[in-house]
């Protein structure tokens, strides 16, 4: 299946998270199936590509941003950002829910602790659900 260039996905990140254009313009967005990939290199049409750049979004009922891409561009987000304290960060990074009211719109949010963009969360009805992929989750033995 070919990758189709669809740079209009930049607008999702601008509208949902207020990420400035100058951060997003360095990426082209390529769609294949339900996934949208962000690529910042010199784009040349070569055959038989397995993957290109980093997965930025997955299409579903609504668009779901990836933790990996939010960790790259999320530092410059100005809305729908949740800032956690240390205890909350540990819970979030272990994949646990956090019951607390945050001043953001319902839906996918960028979750931050101090200067670290932790990744993607889903906020609804006073509950923040961690969307951190299991491979990035903190284990009890970690520091």
């Amino acid at each position: 299946m070919p990758f189709l260039q669809k740079n209009e996905y930049r607008e999702y990140f601008m509208e949902r998270f207020g990420i400035p254009w100058e951060i997003l313009e360095k990426y082209i967005f390529l769609e294949r199936g339900r996934k949208i990939w962000a690529f910042s290199g010199k784009y040349l049409e070569i055959g038989d590509i397995e993957l290109i750049g980093i997965k930025a979004l997955t299409k579903g009922r609504v668009l779901k941003p990836s933790t990996a891409f939010l960790r790259i561009v999320g530092k410059r987000a100005s809305k729908n950002v949740i800032r956690l304290n240390y205890k909350e960060m540990l819970l979030f990074m272990k994949g646990e829910d956090i019951e607390k009211s945050f001043p953001v719109e319902p839906g996918y949010v960028i979750v931050v602790w101090e200067e670290d963009v932790l990744g993607c969360g889903f906020y609804k009805n006073g509950v923040l659900k961690s969307q951190i992929p299991s491979k990035y989750r903190m284990q009890d033995s970690w520091i």
Binding site: G41, I52, K55
Partner: peptide, 27 residues
Amino acid sequence: LAGNIERLGITDVILTQKDARVASFGL
């Protein structure tokens, strides 16, 4: 490889799965 690229935030890489002894990479 894809996992490491993702974790490190590498965005200028195209991944291919080919036999390096014979494959054409197109450029």
